[in-house]
Design a protein around this nucleic acid. Sequence first.
DNA 1: GTGGTCTAGACCACG
DNA 2: GTGGTCTAGACCACT
Lengths: 125, 125, 125, 125
Amino acid sequence: MFRINPASGKAIYEQIMEQVKEAAWKGYLKPGDALPSVRKLALSLNVTPNTVAKAYQLLEKEKVIITIRGKGAFLAENASQEVDKGKMQEIKISLKEILSELRYEGYDEKKIASLIHEIYQDLEG
Amino acid sequence: MFRINPASGKAIYEQIMEQVKEAAWKGYLKPGDALPSVRKLALSLNVTPNTVAKAYQLLEKEKVIITIRGKGAFLAENASQEVDKGKMQEIKISLKEILSELRYEGYDEKKIASLIHEIYQDLEG
Amino acid sequence: MFRINPASGKAIYEQIMEQVKEAAWKGYLKPGDALPSVRKLALSLNVTPNTVAKAYQLLEKEKVIITIRGKGAFLAENASQEVDKGKMQEIKISLKEILSELRYEGYDEKKIASLIHEIYQDLEG
Amino acid sequence: MFRINPASGKAIYEQIMEQVKEAAWKGYLKPGDALPSVRKLALSLNVTPNTVAKAYQLLEKEKVIITIRGKGAFLAENASQEVDKGKMQEIKISLKEILSELRYEGYDEKKIASLIHEIYQDLEG
DNA sequence: GTGGTCTAGACCACG
DNA sequence: GTGGTCTAGACCACT
């Protein structure tokens, strides 16, 4: 269900968090749905349970999931709202960094716009 | 000349690198201009010279500056002229991911273009 | 596993980098293999961990190894597979200069080929 | 007469030494010929006289030139022999390093030989 | 004065 | 345990 890339530079627990959020966001997981147990997910990702547990704890803090002792973790009722809230800000920050890089590579606003157009068309295709 | 924020979460040497690039882009530094010496910048930023040196060495690897032993560091003549192919590909991939996410968020090309414009203006400030 | 010569004139971190590359080339290290940890290698070479870390970080920039926080450093999967274009051009330029000098020394293509062969055999040993 | 590149990474005094040796070797300077004075050369290279003086002193140590107080520096009678002596060893070392790099980039002896051939033909052309 | 390298030690995040 | 970063101080070569 989830995939991680240990060599990506990003912390594994963050990758797990992102994947849960993405699943919630794209509708693969709906409010009330059960998440895989810490142990099972740890096994399937070939990671220590500690790492998965950390991701789940942080997700609960962000009110994306709810954990019930002895039963497991479930997607919160208003998870997608919570997810959306942070998402746009993250996207904007990433976009800002990339634009800054592009600018340094000699791209002015016009060239950037044209690049964006090109990539967007690529997505549609 | 440069400012860093030790509490920003980003490594100091990375912040220095970004500021040099930004100064180059905004024209505060022109090709051939001398950068502040490692020691002086370290003093003014209240950082150890090692940290500044690390930033400068990485900038030299990226061909943003040229350092000459015993003389100092200077903005490279062709800074940002020849676009780094490998880097551009990385940037395009990141951009593609972000655009893809934006589309999920319901952004069409027009809204994306407007968002880009907004962020770009922000960078100029 | 690795040996350095502090009196060789070459920087220690460069020697480490070369030795890793050599081990990769000679097959002592295969893609995915773990490198000795920064601290262990530092101990066995009688160097500070910083020096080893510098070598490893530069090797990662060159995509020779992959480091994973908390796990260690590993030989990259595609080490030496995709040839670095920029680097190849630098190598060719150097080679051209050397061949030019050899020609001045009176070496014709045949003698050069024989010299190359001799040095190459030397490397293998 | 001489050209240096302050950004080449090589020490300037070494570059001057190499250029004198090259001039001797290629016959531009013959035994007994006067070298430019320290001050004049320093001026024309836009370098401090100290740097030129250092190069000349080392060249005298290597018996490539002879300096006479109040008169200047002159190419030694047997300069080209002295020059040749060290030259081949330097070339071999450089060649070894380059072959090592090539090997790491995935070139086996056959590919190296073919590359050498190609570059050699280029020189002839 | 300049940058390049190294040491010895520390703290942090991650697994 | 791992690597990533930073500090404080040292020595060196070069200009």
